[in-house]
């Protein structure tokens, strides 16, 4: 197995996340690190990326402070398939919590509008 070296800020942060169908999900806002066995990160001991964090960080970037980790939707790194100019997942966006706002709006609001469940692309 070969290795590819990347720099987190240069190659990953801010990149588009695509689901398995190539649909855009979110962008990479942060990466969660984990220590040996998935535990806490300790200086000098093996550490790896556990998850891609996507979430509402625009406000904190502008005004400072930080979003609590519990509020950042996470995508497990195991679900990442390819890394190129974008980060491509091996799962569909319907299976991700990261898009829950979009799903909620689709089901509760748009779906209740007459014709809101019609799929124009499904007509062939």
């Amino acid at each position: 197995m070969t290795e590819r070296l990347v720099d987190a800020r240069l190659h990953l942060l801010g990149r588009q996340v695509l689901d398995t169908d190539g649909e855009p999900v979110r962008t990479v806002d942060d990466l969660e690190l984990a220590g040996p066995g998935g535990g806490e990160v300790r200086a000098g001991q093996e550490a790896h990326v556990a998850a891609v964090l996507v979430g509402p960080v625009l406000a904190t970037r502008l005004f400072g402070g930080r979003v609590p980790d519990s509020m950042l939707p996470r995508i497990a790194w195991e679900d990442v398939g390819h890394v190129g100019t974008a980060v491509e997942l091996t799962v569909g966006s319907d299976r991700l919590d990261a898009d829950w706002v979009e799903h909620w709006v689709r089901e509760r609001l748009i779906g209740r509008i007459p014709g809101g469940r019609h799929d124009p692309e499904g007509d062939g």
């Binding site: 720099d7 093996e46 790896h48 790194w77 390819h82 890394v83 190129g84 100019t85 491509e88």
Partner: peptide, 20 residues
């Protein structure tokens, strides 16, 4: 397009190598 020439790899785990 640049995206066609860019590198794209199937990746496994991502290990921290160091800090710049």
């Amino acid at each position: 397009p640049l995206s066609a020439q860019a590198r794209r790899d199937a990746v496994g785990s991502a290990r921290v190598v160091g800090l710049l």
